[in-house]
Structure formats: C-alpha cells, structure tokens
Amino acid sequence: MEKLTTGRNTVCFESDGFKLEGHLFIPEDYKEGEKRGAIVVTRPASGVKEQTAGLYAEKFAEKSYITLAFDPKGYGGSEGVPQMEDPFSIISDNKNAYKYLQSLQQVDANKIISAGICMGAGHAVAASSDDQRVKATLAISPYLTSQIDYPKAFGGRMLTKIMMGISDPIIKLFKMLGVYFYIPIVPLKKWMELIPATETQTGMKQYYGYENKPGSVPSWKNKGNFYHASYIMTGKYNPFNYIKGFINKPFFMAYADGGYSTDKIEQFYNDVPADEKFIMVCPNSTHFDLYYKPEFVKPIVDQACEFLNQNNLNP
C-alpha cells in the first residue's frame, strides 16, 4: 500500500492494462484512521490533471473530501495511445478510478462521488449512471452537444458520415500499422483558422494557450489523435444516451448563463431521473470562466458541498 500524506500525492492505478497517473489530495485536517468521502474529478477534453480538474480536486479537498484528478489513457503522465480522446475509454478509466479509491484505507467506500467538467461532465455521468459504487454525480460547466456541434463544423451530419465512410478504411489500416495522425485542438495560430472549428474550439483560446493562459501547463498538448473523431462525428458517443440508465442518486449541475447550448444543458438536467437534484446557473459568466475564475469556482464548490451534505454525503 502506497504511503499517502496530507496535501497532493502523485499516484498511479491501472485501467484496462495501462498505468494511469493521478493527483490524489488528502485534506489537511485528515486524521490517521479516518475514512472520508471521496470525489473523482474528470477533466475536460484534451485536458490534464494539472489544469481545471486539479483545481477543483484541490478545492473539494479544502472542504475535507479526499479527491482524485487523473490523466486518462494517452494524456499527461498516463500510458496509452497519445492524445486519443476516446469517450468509451475515458468512461472505463473513471470506473477504474472508483475501484482505486475503494482500495484506499482512507476512503469511505459508501461515499464515492463522480464529478466532471465540460466534456468530462458527460463522461462522469456516463460512467456513474448505472454504477452502484457512486453515490452522487456532479456536472460542472457541462458540454454535452459535441455530437451535434462537431458535424456542423464540417458541413452537417450527412456530409460528415460520407467523409467518415471514405476515411474509415484508411484510418483502420494506418491504425493497424501503428501510424497515427494528429490535428490541433485549439486554433492558436493563424494558419489553423483555415481548419473548420466549432464555437467551443474558438472559445478554448480563453483558457488554453502556449503562454500566459490559465491552462498553460507543460503537460498539455495542443493536438488530438485524428482516430478518435469517428466516435463523436458519427454520434456513436452521446452523453444523453446514458440518462435512461441513471440509477436514482443525487445529481448536481452548475453551468454558465453565457455557456454553450444552455437549452440542451437544462434538458439534460430535467431528464436525469434523480429524486434529489440541484441546478446552479452562474450569472454573467462564460463556459470557460467556470474552469478557473475564483468568483465562480468557489461558489460552485460551496454549493455542491452543501448539496452533498444535505444528502448525507458529507466528507
């Protein structure tokens, strides 16, 4: 059993045969022998644990929860095909993160909570929806419409299906040969503006960047493995599909009033079959403001913790 101390610990756990790296936060007020509630924080698409997922993990730890922010396969310090944003793989990583927390003597296995930011919110819901180990789910600044928005940027669903139909055999061949192609995630350079971009990708400039940006950390790479595109482009992955399997458990959502597809966010919230749920709308904010700005992060964490306490999921 690894030696854990209060504060941030760099830890590793296994997921589908790969070693994942995470930051595990033990609250400063933790006493030896205690068992605490624990929160897994899933990062946004392309992100790493040193960015917003780590920030939220740290803030929830300040509220006395044990927290884990991790790099999914292929990102940051984790093993796997580099920069492969595979939703189904990340869902599996989440489930293995729950298993890892269960194995820790410091964790109360009856108080495991799943949280996610942006696309990570959809992954957190998908992973925890039918998982009995998870007692509550938190969706923060959720981005739930990639299956709609990404095809739009490439001419619509029909054209996208034709493009993917033509390219899929080529993609599979190169994948078998171990040859991978990468495309920029955020249009940070002038020439990148020639590539179709979604509104969200353009907005990512606010947070991600090479210098002087909140999400500028050495482990973040502005590239995505092209082979993951078909999951989202063809609608194979859709977080709305997981709502029907959601086991009744507390559900919390916080989103920006100036965020993306707020009507769909509210539809998602309304459709989640939870007896106990709470929605928080952050006024005068954008999607990426909720990633890092203290005036939004603190109230979200405070309200989420109050909600968890009301549902007997205090740390």
Score class of each variant (00 low, 15 high):
F88K: 10
F88A: 05
S89H: 04
S89V: 10
I90E: 14
I90P: 03
I91Q: 03
I91D: 03
S92Q: 11
D93S: 13
D93C: 10
D93T: 05
D93N: 15
N94A: 04
N94S: 03
N94L: 02
K95S: 09
K95F: 04
N96E: 13
N96T: 09
A97I: 01
Y98C: 02
Y98I: 00
K99C: 07
K99P: 08
K99G: 13
Y100L: 02
Y100I: 00
Y100M: 08
Y100P: 01
L101P: 11
Q102A: 09
Q102E: 15
Q102C: 14
Q102F: 05
Q102N: 13
S103H: 02
Q105S: 15
Q105T: 14
Q106D: 11
Q106I: 04
V107S: 01
V107T: 01
D108W: 03
D108S: 09
A109K: 15
N110E: 15
K111N: 12
I113L: 03
S114E: 11
S114K: 04
A115D: 02
G116H: 08
G116A: 09
C118E: 06
M119A: 12
G120S: 06
G120Q: 09
G120H: 09
G120F: 13
A121H: 06
A121V: 02
A121M: 07
G122T: 11
G122A: 13
G122F: 13
V125N: 14
V125Q: 15
A126I: 04
A126K: 02
A126Q: 01
A127H: 08
A127L: 09
A127Y: 08
S128Q: 10
S128P: 11
S129I: 06
S129C: 15
S129V: 05
D130L: 09
D130W: 09
D130T: 14
D130H: 12
D131I: 08
Q132N: 14
Q132Y: 13
R133M: 12
V134Q: 12
K135M: 09
A136I: 07
A136T: 07
A136G: 05
A136P: 09
L138D: 04
L138C: 10
A139F: 03
I140G: 07
S141D: 11
S141R: 07
S141E: 13
S141H: 11
Y143W: 13
Y143G: 03
L144K: 02
L144Y: 03
T145E: 02
S146E: 12
Q147A: 15
I148H: 03
I148G: 02
D149T: 08
D149N: 10
Y150E: 12
P151K: 06
P151T: 05
P151Y: 08
